[in-house]
Write a protein that binds this DNA or RNA. Structure first.
Lengths: 344, 344
DNA sequence: CTGAAAGCGCTAACAG
DNA sequence: CTGTTAGCGCTTTCAG
């Protein structure tokens, strides 16, 4: 009847008073209803309902030491793989009754540190994060010091729990594919490696496979960011006799940007030059030309990372898990056509 | 020296003891440092630093009644406009020292309700949300009852504060554009309208403009979801003499799916049929054909929504703000080519 | 400018 | 099955 509208949020104590039980019993009614007599439970719930009462998690968290909230720290959601990663992680979190606090770092290690501190001040039970480089991350050290559970997503590491694809192997696969198409001079394009150890590993993997296949050394061209190109650098790269016939870009967003730039520079993809990406964003298949890439399912990475984190929080077992990748053959990388003048 | 590693998180009380001041002074040192003598402040900060102390927000929130955390409830991040919306909102939130808790509903009103309750149990200071339909939303009622501030994003409403584009006007613009290209029979394609009032408004807008321009009535075809097509329905739609020459899809993801389906059904876009979308996702420009669409900047919507929400929380003023839209002319909608048999 | 005291809402021992 | 008691970490009057 007297449902309070707006204002005075009722507390558990008042519910207890009205239901003529102790606060502890009301608490039990909500947390372990099995411990409360059916009749008492019913009465408590009736009173609670009538007031629209829901337990205040702040009080509960403060007392119990668990917020049932996880943090998610990702470089950006502009890249659909990270958006997928969120969805995978949140879905898994929700399944176990956890909420998710999220923040993006735009690949900036300074923001990264600030973001993580802001998050852990909220006393999160754990954090899933993608850092620039786990080997020299102040953030990971801070988490460890404070005893906050965490799992890396996308970053590979032998010293920290993580959920990622085998970037080295995936890059090998791509180089092998390009080689099979007849390419012998491949270039690797990425943003600054200091911002992404994934890109660095992909480069290393590419080079090692190129070597073992007897291809030319893969040259590395660095764009201003991980998602934008510099036409000047591209033009220079394509100027000269030893120019690459295929470009392996460290991610799909960059590959997309490269294709647009090449078009602006008067090159046709894949007729004049082949382009491959990494990530397997869904838009790759509807692009023109469709993107040759490595699928590294973001949803799986996020879901797995969250699963590992919960294992760590709830069962104190810390482990890593690799997520499989697949080569997606698109139209952006084609069989090498020797120029007319070189044909027999 | 004796930096505690892992474990026993230091509390403000211990810092106070060690700095030989009262807890209240330590609290002031962190919240209103100006109220503390420089020397005392320095000493407190030194001790705090030494222990890696950071105030526990749970205690602070419980006592002060503010968590400095906002909730964000969106249908899905698979749609890049919502990912952008998050980035805009989070950026604005961070600017004012707020953190963001996020959840996705997959357009499901049941999930919507559960999600919002889970969030507000965390005592958020406010919530930004996109609901199926604000006119009959249990969720909005719940927020109002509990006195939680909120702002709608994407939903338009005259009774709730919101940040959105003028969907009616934008749809009019698109129909006008298609009419200018010579199209007289346009169809509107969307998911179930009960899941999205935006789609409903866009349909209404389209029809009203079609009427005023003297075009045929715009027929509405409903796909199983807002992002996936049913080839059967499409095939049926295109079977017959009065088939539409242009399809206006309620969002870009759906438009993309429609283009793929049409291709599977043997139609060429835009030669056989024109397709337009709504949202202005960035991949639209690199698709083939590039997408004709309405740009409704998600980043702006999110940023504005957050700004309005903070105004509400911090200055008790509640208002709405419209975000401008623009027509993007792509290649997916072309001038109507009359079939040869009909040409003079 | 600083301290003492009270308590935000809840839960975890421990008794009964 | 239920109650009592104490206190999680912090801020906020109100005095000094």
């Amino acid at each position: 009847m007297d449902n309070k509208r707006r204002g005075a949020p009722v507390s558990l104590i008042e519910i207890a008073r009205e239901a003529a039980v102790s606060p502890a019993t009301v608490s039990r009614a909500f947390n372990r209803p099995a411990l409360v007599q059916a009749k008492t439970l019913e009465r408590i719930m009736a009173v609670a309902e009538q007031h629209g009462f829901r337990p205040n998690r702040l009080g509960s968290s403060l007392r119990s030491g668990s917020t049932r909230t996880l943090g998610l720290v990702l470089p950006t959601l502009s890249n659909p793989v990270f958006a997928d990663c969120f969805e995978g992680a949140e879905m898994r979190a929700r399944e176990s009754g956890y909420s998710v606090m999220m923040t993006v770092t735009h690949y900036d290690p300074a923001l990264e540190a600030a973001a993580v501190h802001r998050l852990i001040d909220h006393q999160l039970d754990g954090v899933i994060l993608t850092v620039a480089n786990p080997r020299q991350s102040a953030v990971l050290k801070a988490l460890k010091t404070r005893g906050v559970s965490y799992v890396l997503a996308y970053n590979e590491s032998s010293t920290h729990p993580c959920s990622a694809v085998d970037n080295h192997a995936a890059a090998c696969d791509m180089v092998e594919h390009l080689a099979q198409l007849g390419h012998r001079r491949i270039a690797f394009i990425s943003g600054p490696l200091s911002m992404s150890d994934r890109a660095a590993t992909r480069l290393t993997g590419s080079r090692s496979r190129a070597r073992s296949l007897g291809l030319s050394l893969i040259r590395h061209y660095i764009m201003p960011s991980h998602t934008q190109t510099d036409n000047g650098i591209l033009a220079q790269m394509l100027d000269g006799a030893a120019r690459p016939s295929a470009l392996f870009c460290s991610n799909d967003l960059l590959a997309t940007a490269v294709i647009v730039s090449l078009r602006e520079l008067g090159y046709s993809v894949p007729d004049d030059i082949s382009v491959a990406g990494f990530d397997g964003i869904r838009y790759g298949t509807v692009m023109s030309p469709s993107l040759t890439t490595i699928e590294a399912a973001g949803y799986e990475i996020g879901k797995t990372a969250c699963h590992l984190l919960l294992e760590q929080i709830e069962h104190q077992q810390s482990r890593s898990q690799q997520v499989p990748h697949t080569l997606i053959t698109g139209a952006s990388a084609a069989r090498l056509n020797l120029p007319l003048t070189h044909r027999p």
